[in-house]
Simulated scan of single mutants.
Amino acid sequence: MTTKTVSAAVPAAVKAEAAAVAAAHGMSMAALLRELLARVAARDAETLAWLDKARR
Rank of each mutant, 00 (worst) to 15 (best):
G26S: 02
L33S: 14
V40L: 13
S7L: 12
A38W: 08
A45M: 06
K15F: 02
M29E: 08
V21H: 03
A49F: 09
R39Y: 04
R34Q: 13
T47E: 07
A23L: 06
A8K: 13
V21Y: 03
A45H: 08
L33Y: 12
R34Y: 10
M29R: 12
E35A: 15
T47R: 11
M29H: 08
D44Y: 08
S28C: 01
A42E: 11
E17T: 07
A38K: 14
A23C: 03
A19L: 08
M27R: 10
M29S: 08
L36Y: 08
A23R: 12
P11N: 01
A22F: 07
A45G: 07
A30S: 12
S28P: 00
P11D: 01
A12P: 03
T47S: 09
V14L: 08
V21I: 13
A24S: 10
A12G: 00
W50V: 11
L37M: 14
R39Q: 14
A49R: 15
A45D: 13
T47M: 12
H25P: 03
A13E: 04
R43I: 07
L33V: 15
V14E: 05
W50S: 11
T47Y: 06
G26M: 02
G26N: 04
A9Y: 01
E46C: 05
L33M: 14
A16T: 13
A30R: 14
M27H: 02
V40C: 08
A24D: 09
H25R: 15
L36E: 07
A30K: 14
L32S: 07
V10D: 01
D44N: 15
A18I: 04
A12Y: 00
A20Y: 01
A20Q: 07
L37Q: 13
E46A: 15
P11G: 00
M27Q: 11
V6N: 02
A31I: 04
A16N: 09
R43Q: 15
L37G: 12
A20L: 02
M29Q: 11
D44M: 10
P11C: 03
A42L: 07
A16V: 06
V21P: 02
A18C: 08
A23W: 05
L33Q: 15
S28T: 11
R39S: 09
A24R: 11
R39K: 14
A13W: 00
R39A: 09
T5R: 10
T5W: 01
S7K: 11
M29A: 09
A19K: 13
L33D: 09
A41I: 04
A30F: 05
A30P: 05
K15L: 03
A9H: 06
A8S: 10
R43N: 13
P11T: 02
H25K: 15
K15P: 00
M29K: 13
V10C: 06
L32D: 07
L48D: 15
D44W: 09
L48E: 15
V21F: 04
A9K: 11
R39I: 06
S28Q: 00
A24V: 02
A38P: 02
L33N: 14
A24W: 02
A42V: 04
T5P: 00
M27P: 03
A20I: 03
L48S: 15
L37A: 14
L36F: 10
L48M: 14
L36W: 09
A45C: 06
G26E: 00
A22S: 07
S7M: 10
A31H: 06
A30E: 11
A13C: 00
A8R: 12
A12D: 06
A16P: 01
A19Y: 04
V14Q: 05
E35M: 15
A12R: 02
